[in-house]
């Protein structure tokens, strides 16, 4: 990466904002998530993506989603729809979510915590 100037930073920001949106899978991996098994969830998502297809899908990890008592958690965000947060997950549930929601477009209601985004006030 070339060092940024103030102007280049602004254009880099605009480029990033305008990136084409893909199907986003987020596994929340703060210490609390990892302690309650989010590594297994991530593994299941990765292997499901190998097995079932990963075209147009971005898988990423973030820190804690806040609600430690409901970890492991995962968020699925499809273009044009609000993000959906899942909680109390394990590998099998994560695989089902990947197949039905990420690829199939239909949220797995029974594992959903809630839909919508949190953001800066």
């Amino acid at each position: 990466m070339q060092k940024l100037s103030a102007e280049k930073l602004q254009s880099h920001y605009r480029d990033l904002k305008n990136r084409k949106k893909s199907r986003l899978v987020i596994v929340h991996m703060g210490t609390c998530g990892i302690a309650s098994g989010s590594e297994g969830v991530l593994e299941a998502v990765l292997s499901a993506s190998e097995e079932l297809g990963k075209s147009g899908v971005t898988i990423k990890t973030t820190g804690c989603a806040g609600l430690c008592s409901r970890e492991p958690m995962m968020t699925v965000e499809l273009p044009g729809a609000p993000p959906v947060k899942y909680c109390d997950l394990d590998g099998a549930k994560a695989k089902q979510i990947y197949a039905e929601h990420v690829l199939g477009g239909k949220p797995v209601g029974k594992f959903v915590l809630g839909a919508g985004a949190e953001s800066l006030h």
Partner: peptide, 26 residues
């Protein structure tokens, strides 16, 4: 999606205002 609970209706998330944690989970 219509049938899913909304995050903004869930007590844990509803009353929070994120500034320091503005990027959490994102």
């Amino acid at each position: 999606l219509d049938s899913l609970p909304s995050l903004s209706d869930i007590g844990f998330f509803k009353d929070q205002v994120l500034i320091a944690m503005r990027n959490r989970g994102r």
